[in-house]
Amino acid sequence: MNPLQFFWLFLKASLFSFGGLGNLPFLHSDLIGLGWAHESDFVTAIAVGQVSPGPTGLWSISLGYLTYGWLGAVLALVALSLPPLLILVVSAFYQRIEHNSQVQDFVRGLALGIVGLTVTVALNLASSSIFDWGGVVIALAALALAVTRKLPIILILVLAAAAGLLLYGR
């Protein structure tokens, strides 16, 4: 692995992302393509990112650690810290583009694109972490509980762990 390229891939993913898991499709396509990460690294990192404190977006730090150790974690942290600085540039131009409907439509398109990408990548990842109907039920239950905001994310994961122990323990 080349640290510069590793950094660039994480930076690029962050530059094109909007919100928490927005960088997932980019990292997935690049790192899997290069053979630098396994599907299971992604699912593990997403799970850790959901449990650990701070924004969900920090999941890529966990991915950095899983794929490249401490150096990977540091590179991932720097890579996700830099693009947000562009907000300062955007805020300087805000008055001018605030009411431009083309800009608004473009941003909407980006958001729709990222949702589409996320769905596809999630389904790809499912093949490495869901092996039976029990897994399907757990995934759908987590989806339903999270969308309806019935339970905090962390409780959903605790319940999922308990379900795993019940179904697959021993």
């Binding site: 919100g19 928490g20 898991l21 997932l24 299971s40 699912v43 593990t44 997403i46 799970a47 959901q50 969900t56 958001a111 990222i114 949702v115 996320t118 769905v119 990548v121 999630a122 990842l125 499912a126 972490s129 869901i130 092996f131 029990g134 897994g135 399907v136 757990i138 995934a139 759908l140 239950a141 987590a142 989806l143 339903a144 999270a146 969308v147 994310i153 959903i156 994961l157 319940l159 999922a160 762990a161 308990a162 379900a163 795993g164 122990l165 179904l167 697959y168 323990g169 021993r170």
Partner: peptide, 21 residues
């Protein structure tokens, strides 16, 4: 065993984030 519950849930949460966006 626990991870066999947590990882599918992580997939569900990823999809949920897509829905919420």
């Amino acid at each position: 065993a626990a991870m066999r519950g947590v990882l599918p849930a992580a997939i569900g949460l990823t999809l949920a984030m897509g829905v919420q966006m």
